[in-house]
Amino acid sequence: MFYRSLFPRDVLAELERFQRGMQQSGDVSPSIRGTGRGGYPAMNVGSTPRSVEIYAFAPGLDPASLDVQLDKGVLTIAGERPSVLPPKDAPATVHIDERFYGRFRRVVTLPDDVDPNAVSARYTDGVLHVSVPRRAAAQARRINVV
């Protein structure tokens, strides 16, 4: 197509993306909820002795439309991202459409020792950061041997 050639893709970057996809599909023991990798939003999960931190890379959302729920140790992040693409009958051409549109839902199983009553969530620069503290009793303590 003539117009496509205005924006030649970076072949090396495309190859890198493909390679990363291959690595991700090599996950031998996926979770019962599926690997979810490559889904929207992408997620990073980390933990400290005091809390579990979840980062959902969900750009371009209205924070009020985000539905974050914690039930029985399962954190669910759901919402919908509206399309910016022109309607089919508009006099415009879509050359690249890689961004995600539509409804999404992602689920993370949290460790048993989290405190569901003290969850905090912030949405900054398109990243939803959910912080779930661990219960005080579960935090590691140093035991003195006498």
């Binding site: 924006f7 970057a13 910016v84 051409t93 879509v94 050359h95 690249i96 459409d97 890689e98 961004r99």
Partner: peptide, 10 residues
Amino acid sequence: LPPVDVVEDA
């Protein structure tokens, strides 16, 4: 590689 949408109009 950030995903993009590219739309052209007149």
